[in-house]
């Protein structure tokens, strides 16, 4: 537990880390400003043994107008996972690429471009479609993409289905005209 806290104080001397969440002896999250993120990742990869990029993904915090990027790194020596998080603006979202650190970073970035619309200039093939060939609507993992609305517009429901609300139905059956809550 303490090892990672010591590490954190070391990192803090070089980077303006804005948050630190020590979940367990195996997992911690650290918040880094966007412009220092790739430098920070490079540091922890090369100096602190976080050599394994476990995953890289985004969370759409629509209410705050940001995407929260999470780079999960793993240190095989200390058996510790470090989630490096940074918030970037949702409008014309763009982030520095990490494909030079891990080749599969490019795959993650390609997916993030497609699913969230986050651009990673310079990342190989970032504009190529990954999962959604021929998709032109809003990047579907964004919170404001309404899957239900999309599915209702795209598909048709099976005809002949009708359901009754228990409370409403009992009202119709048992006390249709009685005054209750008005």
């Amino acid at each position: 537990m303490n090892i990672i806290e010591d590490k954190f104080s070391v990192w803090q001397k070089r980077f303006s880390l804005s948050g630190f969440e020590n979940k367990s002896s195996e997992l911690a999250f650290v918040q880094v400003p966007a412009d220092q993120t790739v430098a920070f990742i490079t540091t922890v990869r090369d100096l602190d043994g976080y050599k394994h990029l476990v995953f890289f993904t985004a969370v759409d915090l629509l209410e705050d107008g940001v995407f929260r990027l999470t780079y999960m790194l793993h240190n095989y020596t200390t058996k510790h996972d470090l989630g490096i998080q940074t918030d970037i603006s949702r409008d014309s979202a763009s982030m520095e690429s990490i494909h030079h650190l891990w080749p599969h970073g490019a795959t993650y970035q390609r997916e993030l471009k497609e699913m969230f619309g986050i651009d990673f200039p310079g990342s190989p093939g970032v504009n190529e479609s990954f999962v959604l060939e021929g998709w032109f609507a809003m990047p579907p993992m964004r919170r404001d993409f309404d899957t239900k609305e999309y599915s209702e517009a795209t598909f048709f429901p099976r005809p002949g289905r009708k359901t009754f609300d228990t409370q409403e139905y009992m009202k119709e059956q048992l006390y249709p005209s009685e005054a209750e809550t008005w």
Binding site: R158, R161, K162, T163, F164, D165, T166, Y169, M170, Q173, L174
Partner: peptide
């Protein structure tokens, strides 16, 4: 997959609705 449809008489404590399941 489940709709509630009228089947039996509505009484207090039993809406008379029963689940109809769409196995599709």
């Amino acid at each position: 997959a489940i709709d509630l449809v009228p089947v039996s008489k509505t009484v207090h404590g039993d809406s008379g609705l029963r689940p109809k399941i769409d196995y599709g």
